[in-house]
Design a protein around this nucleic acid. Structure first.
Length: 270
DNA sequence: GCTGTATGCAGAT
DNA sequence: TCTGCCTACAGCG
């Protein structure tokens, strides 16, 4: 379930649990050969930008760069000894904790220059307190592509994924297919501010919840529900199910080979 | 046991 | 716009 909030949360968890600790590093699966070079080193302060996670070590300039891709996962277990289950690309363990990385798109040791190259191609990250959203707005205003597509472009905004895209557009009543150049200043500002809020909540809770209290099923007099991806949302993966606000069936289609979900009434074009 | 699906992205066409 | 890729799991026969 890797959108940006997960990577920021993991960075905090790594730092909290093994920061300043000498760890064992290995690649049970064998596809991260450099893991051995890190064995016995002390972990530094892990950090994230967008969907990229970086783990530095004391005494070396290189950092581990992780990108989870579509289905990668980094699981944390508060046990120092654990049997290897499945394809574990990288295992980082202390006497009290085990981090197992499975199925990442990237797991590699990068030089500072290579790390900078990654940062250079990322747009502002709503979870970065120093992020400046202006370049993101400027780039969207220059594009004819639909705003739904632009929101997933990591060069424009780093960290939002398919769930946050669908939900933030719903929460602001925005038609996903408005071209970037028609994106209104106020609407963009509201979307950015909402991403900051929603993603911070995501880091805190480890799940994506976007439904406002007044629209929760209990408040609307409907039976409670739980979306199967961990949080509670308005439209993501709810195709043909009733909109939580107006009960119109949620619409879905494919845009640049990613599924988009929206309510055709609540997000009606102007 | 097989198939389809997934919160992503790069590289080829 | 398409294909491939990393892995786990649900649903199906």
């Amino acid at each position: 379930m890797p959108e940006g909030h997960i990577l920021h949360r993991l960075a905090g968890e790594i730092t909290e649990k093994v920061g300043g600790v000498a760890v064992h590093s290995s690649s049970p699966q064998g596809r991260f050969a450099e893991a051995r070079e890190l064995d016995g080193l002390t972990v530094g302060r892990a950090w994230a930008r967008g969907k990229h996670l970086f783990v530095p070590f004391e005494g070396i300039a290189e950092q581990v760069h992780i990108h989870l891709g579509l289905y990668g996962a980094l699981t944390v277990t508060d046990v120092g000894e654990l049997p290897v289950v499945g394809q574990v690309r990288w295992r980082l363990q202390s006497t009290q904790h085990t981090f197992d990385l499975r199925g990442p798109t990237r797991c590699e040791l990068l030089t500072p220059v290579e790390v900078d190259a990654i940062l250079d191609r990322l747009g502002p990250d709503p979870l970065d307190p120093l992020a400046d959203p202006e370049p993101a707005f400027a780039r969207m205003k220059r594009s004819r592509l639909p705003i739904a597509q632009l929101l997933l472009d990591q060069r424009i905004i780093a960290g939002a994924g398919n769930v946050y895209r669908a939900e933030v557009l719903f929460r602001h009543g925005l038609d996903p297919f408005i071209p970037g150049h028609a994106f209104e200043r106020d609407a963009f500002d509201a979307v950015w501010a909402d991403l900051v809020d929603l993603m911070r909540l995501g880091v805190k809770h480890g799940r994506i919840d976007t439904v406002r209290p007044e629209h929760e099923p209990e408040a609307m007099g409907r039976p409670p529900r739980q979306d199967d991806h961990g949080g509670e949302v308005y439209v993501y993966r709810r195709a043909n199910q009733p909109c939580l606000v107006c009960e119109t069936p949620v619409a879905a289609s494919s845009l640049a080979s990613r599924n988009v979900y929206w309510c055709p009434i609540c997000q009606i074009p102007d």
